[in-house]
Structures are given as C-alpha cells and as structure tokens.
Amino acid sequence: MTMQEDHKDCFVLEGKMALPNQNFAGRLGSRFLIAIRDRKKIMGLKCNPCGKTFVPPREYCEKCWTKIADNWVELGTEGELVNFTVVRYGDRHLPKKPPYILGQIRLDGADTPLTHIVEGIDPRDVESGIRVKAVFAEKTTNTIMDIDHFEPV
C-alpha cells in the first residue's frame, strides 16, 4: 500500500544562493604538483616510525603525528587499481563526460591510494587488481589534472 500525501496548495519558494569557493593546495600540496608538472614524478611523504608512505601529501603522519613534511620519497608512476567506481552522471563541476572510471590507485611504494581517472578500459571490463600507469597531461593547469589519467599497463 502506498501512502497518499496531499500536497495541494503547499507552495515552494526557490532559493537562488550561489557560493563560489576555492580550495588552497598549500605549499606542500603545491610542491607535490610541481614535481608532477616539471619532472613527471609522483612524490609521497614517508613516516619513518610507522613505515607508511602517504600520497597525496600531508604535513604530519595522522597516526603518530610525526612531522613528515620534508621526508619526500619518489613513488612509481605505476600501481595497482585497488578500488573504483563508475561515474554515470554529468555535471558542470565534474572533470569528464560520463561514463568514466574513478579509480583508487596504490602507486608502487605508497601505502595510501591516489584517486584519479582511469581510461583505456571499458567501464564494463574494469576490475580491482589490474596494473595501471600514469599518463601525464601535455599542458599544465597546476592541478592534479597534470596527471591526465591512468590507463592499463
């Protein structure tokens, strides 16, 4: 049985709020982007006490609060797709036209996954565990999109 709700004569006023916003990468995040842009290298930050390497970068190990901001290590530009979803809706703020694969890639040498777009494989065929490699963008935007996408090795 479905519930019948009477919405007759219940009016709605449309809001018109728009909130532009920015998101600062900070000095540390910018260094990470510069390495991608200028050297085609993906850098991580390693916590020596925990033996964990984080990417994207962070100033402090979130587990033990060791300052790791200067402990850069070079990661591979290849890694394992450890998780993914298929984006099936389009909107102005999204980076690609749907459908596309948003993957989590554990780069060689990293303990945390980097989230990025996976191309070169049909969304119906993608599965966790495949090896993927970074494809760098031809033109820089000084964003994480300086890696254009990842694709199967």
Binding site: G15, K16, M17, A18, L19, P20, Q22, N23, F24
Partner: peptide, 20 residues
C-alpha cells in the same frame, strides 16, 4: 576559518529571503 577560500557574504546575506 579560511574565509579567503569561500564566500562569506554568500553564506550570510545571499541565503536570506527578507520577503518570506
């Protein structure tokens, strides 16, 4: 607060509808 990243007036004033 990191007001430089957002739009304070948008969050306060633009959301108002003084008529209703």
């Amino acid at each position: 607060e990191k007001l430089q990243e957002g739009n304070t007036t948008g969050g306060i004033t633009n959301m108002a509808d003084p008529l209703w």
